[in-house]
Lab assay of single mutants.
Amino acid sequence: TTVKVNGTKYKFDTPEEAQKFAKKAADKYNLKVVVDGDDLRVE
């Protein structure tokens, strides 16, 4: 599972880890998590 934040992709072994990271990033930058198929985007 990958998470894309500000054009940078981060790869995670499990969707749970990816979800946690995406949520933290979204909170930090005051953005929202967008599900894109198997991957997540923070925008």
Score class of each variant (00 low, 15 high):
Lys24Ile: 12
Ala26Arg: 03
Val34Phe: 12
Lys20Phe: 10
Lys23Phe: 07
Val3Trp: 00
Glu16Asn: 05
Val33Asp: 02
Asp36Cys: 10
Val5Arg: 00
Lys32Asn: 10
Asp27Lys: 12
Tyr29Val: 04
Lys9Phe: 13
Glu17Cys: 05
Val35Ile: 13
Asn30Val: 03
Leu40Trp: 08
Thr14His: 04
Lys20Gly: 07
Val33Pro: 01
Gly37Lys: 04
Pro15Lys: 13
Asp39Met: 14
Phe12Asp: 01
Lys28Pro: 03
Lys28Ala: 09
Val35Gln: 13
Pro15Ala: 12
Thr14Glu: 03
Asp39Glu: 14
Ala25Gly: 02
Val42Pro: 02
Lys28Arg: 12
Thr8Cys: 15
Leu31Cys: 11
Val35Asn: 08
Glu43Met: 10
Leu40Cys: 06
Asp36Tyr: 08
Glu17His: 05
Ala26Ser: 06
Val33Asn: 00
Leu31Asp: 06
Asn6Ser: 05
Gly7Val: 03
Phe21Gln: 03
Lys9Cys: 15
Phe21Thr: 02
Val34Cys: 07
Leu31Phe: 08
Lys9Val: 15
Glu17Thr: 04
Gly37Ile: 04
Ala18Trp: 01
Asp39Phe: 12
Asp27Ala: 12
Val3Asp: 00
Arg41Lys: 11
Ala18His: 00
Lys24Tyr: 15
Gln19Pro: 01
Tyr29Leu: 13
Tyr29Gln: 07
Lys24Asn: 12
Val34Ala: 05
Lys32Val: 15
Asp13Arg: 12
Leu31Gly: 15
Arg41Val: 15
Thr1Ile: 12
Lys9Ser: 14
Val35Met: 11
Val33Ile: 12
Val3Tyr: 00
Tyr10Ile: 06
Thr14Arg: 03
Val5Cys: 11
Asn6Gln: 06
Tyr10Gln: 01
Val3Phe: 00
Thr2Pro: 00
Lys9Tyr: 13
Thr8Asn: 10
Phe12Arg: 00
Val3Lys: 00
Val35Ser: 09
Val35Leu: 10
Asp36Asn: 05
Tyr10Ala: 02
Glu16Ile: 09
Asp13Glu: 10
Asp27Cys: 13
Asp36Glu: 09
Phe12Ala: 00
Asp38Thr: 13
Asp13Gly: 10
Val33Tyr: 04
Lys20Glu: 14
Ala18Lys: 00
Asp27Val: 08
Leu40Thr: 03
Lys9Asn: 11
Gly7Phe: 05
Thr8Leu: 12
Val3Ile: 03
Thr1Ala: 06
Thr8Ala: 12
Glu17Ser: 06
Asn6Tyr: 10
Asp39Ile: 14
Lys28Leu: 12
Lys11Cys: 14
Tyr29Ala: 08
Lys11Thr: 13
Tyr29Glu: 06
Lys24Val: 10
Gln19Tyr: 15
Gly7Pro: 00
Ala18Val: 00
Glu43Tyr: 08
Lys11Pro: 04
Asp27Tyr: 09
Thr1Cys: 10
Val5Asn: 00
Glu43Asn: 04
Asn6Ala: 09
Ala18Glu: 01
Phe12Ile: 01
Val42Thr: 02
Gly7Glu: 05
Glu16Gln: 10
Arg41Ala: 08
Phe21Val: 02
Pro15Met: 14
